[in-house]
Amino acid sequence: MNIFRFVGDMSHLASFFLLLAKLIYTKSSTGVSLKTQALYLTVFVCRYLDLLVAFVSWYNELMKIFFIAASAYIVYVVATSTRNSNASDTYRVEFLVIPALVLACFVNETHWSKGGWSLNVMEILWAFSIYLEAVAVLPQLKMLHQLEDTTNITMHYMASLGIYRAFYLLNWVYRLYYEGYWHPIAVVAGIVQTLLYADFFILYYQSVLLRLPS
């Protein structure tokens, strides 16, 4: 575990606490895209199926369980929020899910010559989760651009997700150099995912960091 990976993970963890704080303390899910949160839940469930068959470390196990549980809770809260104005949550997610699934069927890390079919299905689902995570923020980004009164905490949530992605890129550079670690599917999808946040960070800079006190 290098420092870049750890900072990335902590930023990812912080994003959950920021979103949970927003939902619990403001008692409102306004500005939170249910579609993005449902996509993240799908991502974590598909990727962490290996919880059932492999043990890496307690750190990994606990983080995976937390990510699944927290995103499931967030989806539940946002979906059942009576004051949720989801009129602007209009992204057509089938345009994200179906291409990600098709791509995962063709570009994945399966080794059909070894391992059972279930492990290879898990590999396809792992690739699917990587592709889906790369684009899962798009419904949330669309909402941010449409809503005027975006609360700062939602913006900080997005910023911590963007920082998480950026540090994972640094982590991959470090691991490639020092460990020869190379998962091109994750790296290419990670670059795409980080680039999507570049658009957000311009918005963040203009609307949060440059916002004049009123």
Partner: peptide
């Protein structure tokens, strides 16, 4: 099983 299908990241 090869550790997490060779994947140790989140």
């Amino acid at each position: 099983v090869r550790a997490a299908l060779g994947k140790d990241e989140l």
